[in-house]
Design a protein around this nucleic acid. Structure first.
Lengths: 203, 203
DNA sequence: TGAACCATGTAAGGAGTTACATGATTTC
DNA sequence: GAAATCATGTAACTCCTTACATGGTTCA
């Protein structure tokens, strides 16, 4: 039940059309709550039906027919309620850790390449966050909103930092591990997928 | 598409009944891929229909009528395939960060208590992980499987460490911020919606 | 013999993803 | 005037969650 609140937040920050929201959910709020345009349009419809937002009359000579929405008092109240309400943290769910656990049983063959790719992606994301920090939060700036936004950004930075470090360490340890199926315990029929390329101890 | 593979991994580690799996998904694999018993039973049915697992004949005088499952070669092959296949990391999705972003607009009133609670929960989880590390990974132990399992555990430890540190810092900064909507220095709201999207690149 | 629990399952619905549809506008 | 793209939307499907159902077992 967070998507409507993500949208309310975004619309309070700036009234927008569906497409503008979609664009903004590729950055900014989307960094920690992503959404596709289909989700957004559907949710805009619901929020309007509930009286939480309304379409703005097209003041500019609307080219295309984009509808912009703004938040109504009821919507703001709902967002306040939700923000203050207690919510349990969701348990971690990470496919990469699961794959490593699986690899402990069936072997690490074929894993290294994708770990390397993930490392690159996380490094890139980390760089992007740091760039934003340099640009938007220079030393002098610290209004109350800035402080909160900076805090959120630092969560992103620290998380990406964790992943890059952890992945780098995983890659260091990986080449020493058996690559094929039957990596530890089990009887293995030896017929299964062999993969030559992985014997390179790259590093 | 990760639940079936989580189950295959668990069953390879040890053949189990639905209920045993459910129990094991409260710990161990469940630490990074949780599942309810409904999900598990449904998925066991599918996996059996696909020929990836099969029910073991009840060798013990089955009290109750628990069915235990074991993985068939086809299931193991599928798990190998999945483990080696490239997968994109899922974008971060965190309701707490979203709430902070919302709080930057509607005020932080009511947030502190829940942040404190989250901090406690994360500290407890961190302690649990450290306890497991002490118990299961003493200095001497490092077979190939141990190394992988330890690596996974360290990911959990480092993530919880991050959250505890980040939450502690958030709580330090929070009291200085305006608590209610307009309930503080309302300078931020006069020009409000124009600058909400601070982390959004120029536009 | 009734209460509590064990073990497996069904049903309904919410939330997210993927693929496709439609009309308007810009561009070549 | 055809092609590309903009902007909004529908439809179908998967995955997960919540609530409930059913029959067996233990034990007081």
């Amino acid at each position: 039940m967070s998507l409507p609140h993500a949208i309310l937040t975004a619309l309070l920050e700036r009234p927008s059309s569906g497409l503008e929201l979609t664009r903004r959910f590729d950055k900014s709020i989307g960094y920690f709550w992503s959404a596709t345009h289909q989700q957004i349009y559907r949710e805009l419809g619901k929020l309007e039906a509930e009286g939480h937002i309304r379409a703005l009359p097209p003041e500019q000579p609307a080219r295309g027919q984009r509808k912009s929405y703004e938040v109504l008092p009821a919507g703001r109240a709902e967002l306040e309620r939700w923000t203050a309400a207690a919510q349990d943290p969701k348990p971690l769910r990470d496919a990469l850790l699961l794959r490593l656990r699986a690899a402990a049983v069936v072997g690490t063959a074929g894993l290294e390449g994708d770990l390397r790719r993930h490392l690159q992606l996380h490094r890139r994301q980390l760089e992007e966050y740091r760039e934003i920090e340099r640009r938007d939060f220079p030393p002098g700036k610290d209004g109350p909103q800035d402080r909160l936004h900076h805090l959120i950004l630092r969560a992103g930075i620290d998380l990406e930092t964790f992943w890059t470090q952890w992945l780098a360490q995983a890659l260091e340890e990986l080449p020493d591990l058996p690559g094929g199926p039957g990596g530890g315990t089990d009887v293995t029929d030896g017929t299964a997928s062999s993969d030559g390329a992985r014997t390179t101890p790259s590093r």
